[in-house]
Design a protein around this nucleic acid. Structure first.
Lengths: 238, 238
DNA sequence: CGTCTGGTTGATCTAGATCAACAGGAGTGG
DNA sequence: CCACTCCTGTTGATCTAGATCAACCAGACG
């Protein structure tokens, strides 16, 4: 589906089958519909800020949203990327805690805001929704913990290769001139922020990875000239 | 309660009110009871290993259990500490994924193993259990994400002070000679592993923190000579 | 007593940060 | 069409936090 085919009705939403609302009846969806607010967001816009209280959740129909954490000294880190079908801001809402990070739109996105009251009613009446959220939370946690582990033990090289492999998995593999290829969804400096490094370091690393003949870089296109070795170095042979 | 007063019945378990089973009836508890296996674990023992498949969950009645992650090169990190009332291994069980880290007993502990079948039945019949797990997952995630953020942006000093403050919160504040004091629950080298540093670095850091008159260290006792400044540096003024 | 384990200290090395300059688009506006 | 600026990424020179390697110390403990 292209970014132009945006349904404003959950019932016909092309990505609903990936969301927490996947097994709701039209009846139940109507509850969301009543107070739902949808629109296109441009890169740089923010859904909510670190420290905000949640008044509901955001559901990404298409696009990419990053969770940005900023510490007291102004250092910024990208904790996670959320793509289509993901609901964001749900942890703050469900735990009545302030948002731990800001939600920053990274690519043009179509996003719905789901009202807190509606969501509460849904949770109270439709146990499947809670189950889906549990599943979602666990999945998020598994991802984050794995990244956290790598970030505590690994070098910048390992961390970079690790996130490349993450992209490779979700973000689809595509053969082209025979080689496995991915399209980086975000710019270099943002990748740097995902692994706690500086853009300059990534630049140098990219160069040395090419010299090692592990990968080929062309703009945002990355092709794996030696998948085996990359997996190895990324620590996926355990 | 002392470590000698261990109930083998959930119904009379002194820490049940902190667990996922807190709002179950005696009737429902009986289901767990039937297949439950409890015993005392000594430091160094392991509840499960990274990569294992979960056949149930572990419930900590007393003691401390660490989640240890080891990467391909053998580097180890401590991802999280779980104390009394915490259930561990639930994510692997609920997501049918292999354990992402090992559960290593750090202090003498009394721990129950709860069978997967019993748990499944409970989840199917008692929706509160699922809700408690959701709450637990969210809490864990909030903790981990905050640590992850700090670990991406901060220096060893910041990370160290941050985890000290985490200890300070849970692990109870205690005034003594007027100063706020905490007892480190684990040894220095394990703290080092929690923040991705080497023990030697912690040693030197501790010394410089005392020179700065921020903290006093005496064995595992730490007293805050300048709480304000510590909070500041730990990044809790945002 | 020796042996272990946890912690300290010193000397040295290095991955990666920092600072600074620069280069190639992509708009934008005259 | 060119001149301008913005933005992302590159390269070089230098600096430093923290790792590494190695010796050593104190208390615990059989």
């Amino acid at each position: 589906m292209t970014s132009s085919d945006h349904s404003h009705k959950c019932a016909t939403c092309p990505t609903r089958h990936k969301t927490e609302w996947r097994d709701l009846t039209e009846q139940e969806l109507e509850l969301i519909e009543l107070t739902k607010k949808s629109r296109i967001y441009e890169p740089g816009e923010t859904l909510y800020h670190q420290g905000d209280n949640a008044d509901g959740v955001f559901c990404i129909q298409s696009g990419l949203v990053g969770a940005r954490f900023i510490d007291v000294d102004g250092n910024s880190a990208l904790l996670r990327l959320n793509g289509e079908g993901k609901t964001v801001g749900y942890r703050a809402f469900l735990s009545r805690q302030p948002q731990g990070s800001s939600a920053e739109v990274l690519t043009p996105s179509f996003i719905c805001h789901i009202d807190g009251d509606a969501l509460s009613k849904l949770l109270a009446n439709s146990p499947q929704v809670g189950e889906r959220f549990l599943q979602h939370a666990i999945e998020d946690m598994n991802d984050t913990e794995s990244q956290f582990g790598v970030s505590l033990t690994g070098s910048v090289k390992v961390k970079f290769l690790h996130t490349l492999m993450v992209f490779y998995r979700q973000h689809g593999s595509r053969c082209e001139d025979g080689l496995e290829t991915i399209d980086l969804p975000i710019k270099r400096s943002d990748i740097a922020e995902m692994i706690g490094a500086r853009p300059e370091s990534i630049s140098r690393l990219v160069r040395s990875l090419q010299d090692e003949e592990l990968l080929k870089f062309d703009g945002r296109k990355v092709s794996f000239t030696n998948m085996e070795a990359v997996m190895q170095e990324a620590g996926l042979t355990a």
